[in-house]
Amino acid sequence: MTAIPTLALSIGWGTTLAIKTLIILAIIPLGALILGYVFLLKMMSHMQSRLGPMDPGGFHGWYQLVGDGLKFLQKEDIMPAQSDRRVFAAAPAVVVLSTFLVFLVIPVGPDLVDKSLNVGVFYALAVSSLSVIGVLMAGWASANKYALLGALRAAAQLIAYELPLLLAVVGVVIQAGTLSLQGIVLSQQHGAIFGFGGLGQPFILTQFFGFALFLVAAQAELTQTPFDMPVAESELVAGYMVEYTGFRFLFFFIGEFGTAFGFAAIAATLFLGGWALPGVHGTWADILGPGVLFIKLMAVAFLMFWVRFTYPRLREDQLQALAWKVLIPLGLANILLTGVFKVAF
């Protein structure tokens, strides 16, 4: 549908920017809400033989998180007396900012992408690691030993798992031949499995190692169990977030689940084909694209949260050993194999 760019030209640059920004600003909390409700409140509850919220909103408690958000907004803003006030206030903003920047490049249709960059994947991964700074700021500014411990653990962990994330993605990039996310989706749509072009070629079939590696690294980047040492509930009681109350904590929460939404979307785009559905092109792809991406994203998120609710957490040194000694060699081997196969076939 070429009407959208034409419409954009006639509206004007500033208004387009405003609209795009607002759309993403709306999607982040909405995505966080959906993920939080479906997986954290309902799926986790049923895995634990209980029901989860049932009363708020009447139908299976769908209003619970909205109510929680409103509750957080009206709470007192408590800052520890000895905290560094500006850094304390800025930390949640930095985390949410990194989430916002990731969403800019995710395509939801052939023409529906906020900013189609040629180096989309590179940009997305680079920008998602900004949250490390936010975590460190939060831990240091809290003037709390528990928070500091959590932040230091988080910094070490997040930096360590950037590499397996990157290496998993490089395999996909080699196969697609482009760093642009839109290009990766298109190459999956127009690819062929052993000559059969009907289903396209979702990269999960050839890059299953990469997919597994990406999921593990994404789990660690989101500090979710089994990698949630920074937020170890039974030890540090929310780790680096322990001194945050009210809307600042809400920002962290939205940042965490928003980033989960973003990573699931990126995984769906890289490995499952993104918005592409076999046989659907043009205008229909623009209409169905968001829905298709949403379904694939929820499937990936299901896997991530399923693992989160089942496994205990790894200790910090075991976690680091896993990253450096196991995942990075596997990632390098994956790249090697991908390169060989790409050249050979």
């Binding site: 799926m43 033989s49 089942t310």
Partner: peptide, 21 residues
């Protein structure tokens, strides 16, 4: 054991919850 654990949580998810509302 990692797979077995996933199987148990999946199985429990499909069974009705024991909560009395």
């Amino acid at each position: 054991g990692l797979i077995g654990g996933l199987g148990i949580t999946f199985k429990t998810m499909l069974r009705p919850a024991v909560t009395v509302q």
